[in-house]
Amino acid sequence: TRVMVHKAQQSPKKIVYPEGEEEKIIRAAQSVYEDKIALPILLGNKEIIENKIKEIGFDVSHFEIVDPERSNKSEIYSNKFYEKRQRKGITLHEAHLMMKQPNYFAAMMVEMGDADALVGGLTYHYPQTLRPALQCIGVRDGLKVVSGMYIVIIKRKIFFFADTTVNIDPTAEELAEIAITTADAAKAFDVEPKVAMLSFSNFGSASYPQSQKVAKATQIVKQLRPDIMIDGEMQADTAVVPERLEKEFPFSTLKGSANVLIFPDLDSGNIAYKLFQRLTDATVIGPIINGMKKPVHVIQRGDTVQDIINISAIAVVDASR
């Protein structure tokens, strides 16, 4: 995270926080401002937010505060959102109502260029932050899916896990896309990606549709991005124990321990990161959303102020890419 904070400080951006009335958000926004990571925009009732800022003892002038219910941008955002969604069942009246919701208003702020990144989700369920972002901003050109990545730091080693939060049962094509966007994200952290496509099978040892899907995804990545070091399908221990890989599978195009671990489905990815988070002393950072057209990063209900600061720094670097 120090790498990300340092990178963010070189080019601070405007971050919008839809849950601007929450104390944790206000505290994180203050740190982000003080450390010159970003310029925070807090959404919510102006009076409530200003009172909370004063109660905590911060300076109101450090924050831009926007009330979606009273903003003069609401009309512009509603019309733009209606334009995007009119053939997907949204009426103009519904668009106006939706723009009163901070999660939709924040996503449109980013889409319209009034903010550079969105960080939210502290009081929402995961889809309540992701869905408005997908409807307002959308997936990056050339991609079909977004995916959720966690950074897992353990025993002084860094790993990137995906997809941990979005796609329940990705196809081979989607899995290939997830592998590519995760490898590119690792590079943004100054880590040279070594990608393992995980399965219960090692290179055809247990040939079932589930493992064949992973093998097919691996081939797609190799064709589309020959610059990425990748192999699979392989078991998790094969991926992270280089001696085993070299001894039993010397033909593998993966050399050394993998640091990007791509899971075959959401079950395995979600379970894996949560076990690391709860049963080990690993530092687990995320989820980081890869594949959005503009930066949207989801925080979670139990996140600490420091977690929010970390994700904010990542959002700024994402916006600078």
Rank of each mutant, 00 (worst) to 15 (best):
V214L: 00
V214Y: 01
K216I: 04
K216T: 12
K216L: 12
K216Q: 14
A217K: 00
A217D: 04
A217C: 07
T218C: 09
T218F: 01
Q219S: 14
Q219Y: 05
I220A: 10
K222L: 07
K222E: 05
K222S: 04
Q223F: 12
Q223P: 03
Q223I: 13
Q223G: 13
L224S: 12
L224F: 05
P226H: 06
D227W: 01
D227C: 02
I228E: 02
M229L: 08
I230A: 04
I230M: 06
I230E: 02
I230N: 02
I230V: 15
D231R: 11
D231Y: 11
G232D: 08
G232S: 11
E233H: 07
E233F: 06
E233D: 14
E233R: 02
M234P: 04
M234S: 05
Q235T: 11
A236V: 15
A236F: 15
D237A: 08
D237S: 06
D237T: 06
T238G: 09
A239K: 03
A239R: 01
V240H: 08
V240K: 08
V241K: 14
V241F: 13
E243F: 10
E243V: 07
E243N: 13
E243P: 09
L245M: 15
L245Y: 10
L245F: 08
L245R: 15
L245G: 10
L245D: 11
E246F: 10
E246C: 09
E246W: 09
E246L: 14
K247G: 05
F249N: 05
F249Y: 15
F249W: 10
P250G: 10
P250N: 11
P250E: 11
F251K: 15
F251Q: 15
T253G: 13
L254K: 02
L254W: 00
L254G: 03
K255E: 03
K255Q: 07
G256V: 09
S257N: 11
S257A: 15
S257C: 08
S257P: 13
A258Y: 07
A258R: 06
A258D: 08
A258V: 07
A258I: 10
N259Y: 07
V260N: 07
V260H: 06
V260T: 08
L261F: 02
L261R: 00
L261M: 09
L261W: 01
L261K: 00
I262F: 00
F263A: 04
F263I: 05
F263L: 05
F263M: 03
F263H: 02
D265Q: 12
L266Q: 04
L266I: 08
L266C: 05
D267T: 13
D267N: 15
S268F: 05
S268D: 07
S268C: 08
S268A: 13
